[in-house]
Computed example of a mutant assay.
Amino acid sequence: MMKLDLIAVRVAARRIEALDIVSLDLVPEDGNALPAFAAGAHIDVHLPGGLVRPYSLCNPPGGESCYRIAVLRDPASRGGSQAVHAHLLVGTALAISPPRNHFPLDAQAPFHLLLAGGIGITPLWAMAQALFQTGQPFELHFCTRSRARTPFLDTLASSPFAAQVQHHYDDGEPMQKLDIAATIRQAPAGTHLYVCGPQGFIDAVLQAGRDAGWPENRLHREYFGAAPVASANQGAFELQLASSGRVIPVQAHQSALAALLAAGLDIPMSCEQGVCGTCLTGVRAGTPDHRDQYLTDEERAANDRFLPCCSRALSPRLVLEL
């Protein structure tokens, strides 16, 4: 039986957007409107074989008759993108979560600078459409390996804001490649930056923003995958539930999330990489070993929450708000 918070949908359309990239239009099985969302939101897609993966919505908010996602077939994936490309054909029925948004636009920003790397265009494409609809100033820079690997190329070219979009190709002329530092330096005063794409691209953009003196509250990012975090601490530790005092051991090389699930707790989860924030759990005592890409540096320093899918403990025990 489907969980009550999931939505039954089917694939109404499927398009090849670029080399190894497919987009899917998901419509509700019951014909009712889908829940409203804001640009930057994602949904969890429940795939064949029990996999659950988050994908950003790339269509603009408003008139939610369908959700559109675009997925890159990644040979290094853990099975999610392969399942999408192989099994999600037109007519396929599946379940999705309601939209969640950890990457919203700042309505007070005087200017929005959108920097996309590869398939990281998906939330930023929704943002560009939403910003145009509301008349807010923005600029979109889209970096890809080549034209053949650039999704939405024709759609972007024919959009009413095509003049606000610049393409940058790794295999193009030097003038085509994005000068991140110069782009940030030339942005209007008070600009908010939004970046999504591979981790190396995001890290370079954020560092350029910091080097330019931009405060963290103007640097927004969304990761699609987490890189392994090197740490000497890979030993066992304990989790204590604040509500009951129950202690759950976490073995070396076992995730805290796996230990909680094995103990019978119902913990919401999605990416299992510390990217989406779905499993975020409060911490009352102890010191987490943060290994996620979701929390800000300030939130990590507070040590009052952690993501059990990837993070561990620097102290022998963590007392959780569970």
Rank of each mutant, 00 (worst) to 15 (best):
L239M: 02
V9N: 11
G172C: 08
P61L: 07
A148I: 14
F111M: 02
S65E: 13
N59V: 09
R300H: 10
A38Y: 12
G190F: 13
A226Q: 03
L307P: 10
L105I: 07
V45T: 00
I121G: 00
A76F: 14
G120E: 10
Q293S: 12
I180C: 00
F142N: 00
P308S: 10
L47N: 11
S77E: 14
L105Y: 08
D170W: 15
L131Q: 04
P104A: 07
C310Y: 02
L94F: 11
F161D: 04
R10G: 11
N233H: 15
H112Y: 12
A189T: 14
T281W: 07
C66P: 01
A86L: 06
A204E: 12
A263K: 12
V90D: 08
S315H: 04
S159F: 06
L88H: 09
S255M: 05
A38H: 12
R221F: 14
R185H: 13
E29A: 08
D289T: 06
G31V: 15
L206Y: 13
G286E: 02
I69Q: 13
L88T: 09
G264N: 07
R185P: 09
V247C: 14
D154K: 03
C309P: 06
H112G: 02
F142D: 00
L47M: 14
R317N: 04
V90N: 07
P151N: 02
H102K: 04
Q166I: 07
S146L: 14
G190T: 09
D30I: 02
A38T: 15
P215C: 05
D297G: 00
L265V: 04
A208H: 13
E139P: 04
A157T: 11
T150I: 15
A83R: 12
S81W: 03
L19A: 12
Q166H: 15
G63D: 15
R147Q: 13
R78F: 09
A226Y: 08
L19Y: 14
V229S: 02
Q108T: 14
F142K: 00
P215Q: 03
S56C: 08
A12D: 08
Q273R: 05
D44R: 10
I69L: 11
P151Y: 12
D297C: 07
P268R: 02
L57Q: 10
R10I: 05
I7M: 04
R185T: 14
C196R: 09
D304I: 12
A259W: 12
E222D: 05
D20N: 13
P215H: 06
A232I: 13
P308V: 04
N217A: 04
V45G: 00
G282T: 03
A256P: 13
A107G: 06
V283M: 03
V165D: 12
T183K: 09
L19G: 03
I267P: 04
P98N: 03
M1R: 08
F161K: 03
L51R: 08
E139Y: 13
Q240I: 06
I16P: 01
M127S: 10
A259G: 10
G172V: 14
A256G: 11
Y55M: 04
M127N: 03
L156K: 05
L24D: 00
D179Q: 09
F103V: 11
F201S: 02
